[in-house]
């Protein structure tokens, strides 16, 4: 059984004047432990697909199954809970919360999870920060960090809840090549050592080549 299974996914955006098809009959399955890249030109629907996998958006048609769960049937709260326990997100522009320090940013997913004491949460955050080599920045605010450090914090936030899937939307897009390479190696190690399934949207052909599989998109359709 695949970890991620998309069947006949279409996404149509409607406004008063126009109807835009972002995705058309997309079928995709991702196995446990796979590192997948999605490539394609801007506006081809790859981010929309990532959002649908991330349960942040709903497809107009088609079914989404993640980790044996029929996600089409989940209500809003159940989806929130599902995201919280099973999914991690990494964004192009990091999206760290500027008013929170590094530790609090990383702690965020745990804050929405019941049944963990503050001490346990702190322990888990320290562990992750240690692993990503940014524990010395724990008390700093995002504005005091470099781009690479920010993305490390963002990755720490994505994995602190021990999700099975991490969704990365152009994680190196805002970084120079050296820092981009660091982030990529970090993602690879998460994939290899922890068995986290990673779906990454990227423009970078070289980075995509390093992953297990590349899915190419054009105009809302999978072309390879």
């Amino acid at each position: 059984m695949s970890l991620i299974e998309l069947n006949g996914i279409s996404k149509v955006y409607r406004t008063k004047e126009i109807e835009t098809t972002a995705l058309e009959n997309v079928n995709l399955s991702v196995e446990q432990g796979e590192f997948l890249s999605i490539m394609g030109p801007s506006g081809c629907g790859k981010s929309t697909l990532l959002n649908i996998i991330g349960l942040l958006d709903k497809p107009t048609e088609g079914t989404v199954r993640l980790i044996d769960t029929d996600c089409n049937r989940l209500g809003d709260n159940a989806m929130s809970h599902f995201r919280n326990t099973n999914l991690g997100f990494v964004f192009q522009s990091f999206h760290l919360i500027p008013s929170l320090d590094v530790a609090s940013n990383v702690e965020l997913p745990l804050a929405y999870r019941g049944g963990m004491s503050a001490a346990e949460r702190r322990e888990r955050v320290d562990e992750v920060l240690e692993r990503l080599g940014i524990s010395h920045r724990k008390k700093h605010f995002p504005t005091q960090l470099s781009g690479g450090q920010c993305q490390r914090v963002a990755i720490a936030r994505a994995i602190v809840g021990r999700p099975s899937i991490v969704l990365a939307d152009e994680p190196t897009g805002n970084l120079d090549s050296k820092m981009g390479a660091e982030v990529m190696s970090l993602l690879h190690s998460l994939n290899a050592d922890d068995g986290i399934t990673i779906v990454m949207v990227t423009h970078n052909e070289a980075q995509a080549q390093q992953t297990d599989r590349i899915v190419r998109f054009f105009d809302g359709r999978v072309i390879s």
Binding site: S80, N84, F89, H95, P98, G161
Partner: peptide, 16 residues
């Protein structure tokens, strides 16, 4: 707004 979006992504419910 984007903070709220991020929180939602990481599993915060509407009610929360």
């Amino acid at each position: 707004v984007s903070e709220i979006g991020v929180r939602r992504a990481f599993g915060c419910t509407r009610a929360r």
